[in-house]
Structures are given as structure tokens and as C-alpha cells.
Computed example of a mutant assay.
Amino acid sequence: MRQSQQGLYLRSIKLLRESVPSFDMYPFHLSAIRNLEELEFHPKVTYLVGENGMGKSTLLEAMAIGLGFNPEGGTINFNFSTEATHSELHAHLRLVRSVNKPRDGFFFRAESYYNVATNIDQMDREGGRSPRIIDSYGGKSLHQQSHGESFFATFLNRFSGNGIYMMDEPEAALSPFRQMAMLSRIHELVQRRSQFIIATHSPILMAYPDSVIYNLSSEGIERMTLEETDHFILMKQFINNREKMLHELFLEENEE
């Protein structure tokens, strides 16, 4: 994959197969991990897609830990831990970095974002900082906003550019309109020399044109276009043939 190096911070990852304790144990038994040799990243946006349980979040988490992020999310400076549930995959990955050094970075995890928001409030209460940490997130406690509002406040205010941003299912609390706004924000940040690696189920978020999509499946990892993904195909079929698909779904349910 020949790509411009401008704005590229993480070039690729390699699985250190000789150090893997066993390919029969989690997470190495997952097909996407078992078959992983080297994965190259787009200098702007890389997507990890696929069905639940294929290892998208596990792989993204391992890369984030390798870059120095907290397993539960946040910036490099976040060191809180509510429960150590991350795998040991990060210890068996080699991250190949560019000579470019990011000035900013964030690991966003929808499932543990509540913990990040709680930690920000706690640090501001205890630290007596000026400006407060929350000021870089828009100034309003993330707990005093809806999930969607707090997510977007982070994307809009905390992501400043010249950075690497790892995102795990950022669409979780975003409406379709907000997902399109997120695409616009990604474009703004890409123009400020930012790199994104995103695990997602959203065909809207996958639509950024200057990107690469990797599909994780039981067959391994395959590069594909947006139109080739199951997410896009199923959504298109449902929208164009809603009544027929609903009839088939309900018929299958009755037969069971």
C-alpha cells in the first residue's frame, strides 16, 4: 500500500507471532488475530469493521495501549483504572511509527466513556487547576450532558489536531445527523495533520473518502470498499426493501 507519509504517525503494526503463548487462547484464537501478520494504516483514516466478536475493539485497544493510552480511554495523561479487563495482545504487537511525532492524541471508547467523564470531574475537584481539565472539553461537565452531547463535545473541543485519535464505536450515542457532523469534524482534523483509526459499525462514518477499510471476519482481515461491507449492503437493502425484509424477519421469527 503506497501512500503519502504526510500526517502519518502510526504506519503499521506487526504481530510478534513467536511470542504468542498459544493461538488457542483469547484473544489469539480470534481469526483476525490468528491470521494477522502486518497491518498498514492509512495516513488519514483507517476503519476496522466487522461483526460483533471479531476482535475490532480488542485490536484497537491493544494498539492504543501500545501508544501509551489508558486502556479505558482518554489522553496519554489519564492513568485511572476502574477494572483491568484489557487483554495481553498489546505485549505481542510491534508498532511501526513514523518520524512524525503527534502533539495530541485521544483514545475514545464508547463503553467506558462514563469512567473518563467521572475521572475528569474528580481531577478538577481535587486539583484546583486553572484552567480546569473540563475547559478543554467545552467547559461543561460531561455528566451534565446527554451521551450524544458529551461525545460530540469531546470530538469538537478536545480533539485539537496534529494528533492521533483512536476511536471505538464513536457512533454509539450519535444520531445520523451527528454522525455526518462527525465526518465533517474528522475532515477538519485531517486537514490539521491528524490520523484516525476507527472501529465502527456505522456506514455513515465509514464514508470518509480518503481512507482504508479493513473488514475483520472469521476468515481473517480483508481490505474492502464501503460498498462491499455487510454494513452498507444490509442497510441499503433494508432501506430499499423495508417491507419485504420485515416480512422475512417476522416470518423467520414465527417459524422459530
Results as ranks from 00 to 15, higher is better:
L10Y: 10
T154Q: 01
S150L: 05
E253I: 14
S150C: 10
I134K: 09
R223N: 04
N35G: 07
R2G: 14
P27H: 02
L67C: 02
M180R: 13
P21I: 03
Q195N: 06
F196N: 09
M167I: 12
H201I: 11
S218A: 13
E18T: 07
A91Q: 15
I204N: 03
P102I: 10
Y113T: 12
L189R: 02
P27M: 06
G128P: 07
Q5T: 14
I221T: 02
N52W: 06
D230T: 13
Y208G: 07
E171D: 09
N119T: 12
N70C: 09
R94I: 08
G127L: 03
I13E: 00
P27N: 05
T75C: 05
F151M: 07
N77F: 10
M123H: 11
Y165N: 09
R103P: 09
N77E: 15
I133A: 07
S136K: 07
F152Q: 07
R192I: 02
E169G: 05
S19N: 12
L249A: 15
Q3A: 14
L249C: 11
V96E: 15
A32M: 04
S87C: 04
K236Q: 13
A32N: 02
R2M: 13
M235W: 12
K140T: 15
A62V: 00
T46P: 02
R185S: 01
L246N: 09
Q144K: 14
G163E: 02
F108V: 07
S146G: 14
N70Y: 09
K14C: 02
E243V: 13
I239F: 11
K14V: 10
R103N: 13
H143T: 05
G105Y: 04
P203K: 00
I198C: 04
S136E: 11
A153F: 02
